[in-house]
């Protein structure tokens, strides 16, 4: 059985879980959407007072918020629940059963569950984004911009995966890392703020130190046709690829060092 077929089984099982907890499923969708709607409301209230924030118009900021919500949605759908379950699996000792399966442990531990409610929550930002494009509120300069947009959107999800896996690796050593997961989620909520609000030093820090800007601003800037700094474009692929290799290595190393805890 190849990995894609295995993932389809994971998807089917996740769907069955949705059918058992239908009310919870609806609650989660509404919850995810409310935060997104509040963010839009927040900026609409601000834009009632000023015409632009650091050169970004209201439509552009809404577009940025949609891109951010899509990145959050993809991460929450395919990766988040799996990584955040890891500490409790270590505590209970059930991780041991995962590790004896004849499948790559990283694949098994990071893709076993699909959070279908988050997948449904992608619909609203995707709808608003398409509407902004169709009403020409946002203008795409050329087809390269579309290509770069999807590439950087994928890069953003990979980056969330990298950060999540690195935190999950710490769980093998420290077990209690839930607050770190919350901290990173909180950080990346602010990826929807326009990059132009930051000072030069802060911009560098929030791009390459804690990659808040890279997540939503990069894909959004690509589609809007905004210019990137040369350092940003040249370091971007290196950062993503190096991060991915590092995360996989650290996770594999932590698994090798892992000693069972539960009973």
């Amino acid at each position: 059985m190849n990995y894609f077929s295995l993932w389809l089984i994971f998807l089917r099982n996740s769907w069955k879980r949705v059918l058992v907890y239908r009310v919870n499923f609806l609650i989660l969708i509404i919850g995810n959407l409310f935060w997104f709607i509040f963010s839009i409301l927040f900026f609409q209230i601000l834009f009632a007072q000023i015409p632009a924030i650091g050169g970004w118009t209201l439509n552009e900021v809404i577009f940025l918020l949609c891109v951010n919500q899509i990145v959050i949605g993809f991460y929450d759908t395919f990766i988040k629940a799996n990584l955040e379950r890891l500490p409790s699996r270590i505590r209970e000792g059930s991780l041991d059963f995962d590790l004896v399966k004849p499948v790559d442990p990283i694949f098994w531990l990071t893709f076993q569950r699909v959070q279908i409610s988050s997948m449904f929550s992608l619909a609203l930002p995707a709808f608003i984004l398409v509407r902004l494009l169709l009403t020409h509120s946002i203008v795409i300069p050329n087809s390269t911009a579309i290509f770069l947009f999807f590439l950087m959107l994928f890069g953003a999800v990979v980056l969330r995966f990298v950060v999540g896996v690195l935190i999950a690796s710490l769980a093998m050593r420290f077990i209690s890392v839930q607050s770190l997961f919350s901290l990173q989620s909180e950080f990346f909520q602010y990826s929807g703020y326009p990059t132009s609000i930051y000072s030069k030093g802060a911009k560098l820090f929030f791009t390459f130190g804690i990659p808040v800007i890279m997540l939503a601003n990069f894909p959004a800037q690509a589609l809007l046709g905004n210019k990137f700094e040369p350092i940003e474009l040249s370091l971007y692929p290196v950062y993503i690829i190096f991060g991915l290799i590092l995360a996989v290595k650290v996770f594999s190393h932590s698994l090798r060092k892992y000693s069972s805890l539960g009973g």
């Binding site: 000023i50 015409p51 924030i53 901290l183 909180e186 602010y190 703020y193």
Partner: peptide, 21 residues
């Protein structure tokens, strides 16, 4: 630290806003 993060981003955002108004 988690709940104080909004404060960090608030400084940048509101500085930009109050530069204009």
């Amino acid at each position: 630290l988690t709940i104080s993060l909004p404060l960090v981003f608030a400084v940048f955002l509101w500085k930009t806003v109050f530069n204009q108004v």
